[in-house]
Design a protein around this nucleic acid. Structure first.
Lengths: 119, 119
DNA sequence: ATATACTATTACTCTATAGTAATGTGCTTG
DNA sequence: CAAGCACATTACTATAGAGTAATAGTATAT
């Protein structure tokens, strides 16, 4: 028996994973998630903060809601949205670091080129 | 001065982040990434393993390449692809756990409903 | 009841891209 | 060099979804 066996992922698992990643794949939705890192906010607040149109913000919030990324609480005239799953912060951090890592590597390669050119 | 100030993300940062997430948002690309977790493979091997058409596999590999997620090494007739950035494993794990967490919660709520119904 | 404010939905256009078939490109081998 | 193989690219169709304007719901206030 091997130390580590790669788990078999079903077709459904790949679909589900893809959908989840897709929820994070639009700048507007990332802006919304980012804005909600301060805590619960209303749609109007999010509209102001992201600079989007109300209809578009509502639509993206709906997608985030259906993806299970945010929660909604209705009170009076307002809908209050908040992050449903805190593990999202880690996820975004990790992705940011991954990008940063690659950019740093790229930057280093340029520096290396310059220093070997001037050496 | 506050303990923690949320970093300001530029429009470009949101775009870049979105693009990166988008690279992970298609089942076929996830299949390819998954297949490459064993290590370097040729296109033909990936075609067999994923069950996709060659043209489609090539196209998705190109996207992963441009996103910096995989690397390519050409030798003779073959192109050998491999994961470029190991932090991708963590990323996928985290996303899987996030999904698992929510499914577990959902499952629990059903169990709770049943046990309170039968209590 | 009427008016107003906040949010959600609908209908539309436009763009991006997934899948596919056909073709192109470049090695390699006889 | 001619044939064959691995891979990449192109051209096409079909679908999803982003942005937007207009409209519909729904709660509150007068």
């Amino acid at each position: 028996m091997p130390k580590y066996t790669k788990k078999n992922l079903s077709d459904e698992a790949f679909e589900r994973l893809g959908e989840q990643f897709k929820a994070f794949s639009e700048p507007m939705r990332l802006r919304l998630i980012y804005a909600l890192m301060d805590g619960e906010k209303t749609v109007s607040e999010l509209v102001k903060e992201t600079g989007g149109l109300q209809a578009n913000v509502s639509k993206h919030l709906r997608m985030l809601l259906e993806a299970g990324i945010v929660e909604r609480r209705k009170q009076g005239l307002n809908s209050y949205y908040s992050i449903a799953d805190p593990s999202i912060f880690e996820l975004c951090d990790l992705m940011c670091n991954s990008i940063r890592g690659r950019l740093t590597a790229e930057l280093d390669s340029f520096s290396a080129a310059r220093s070997s050119a001037t050496a």
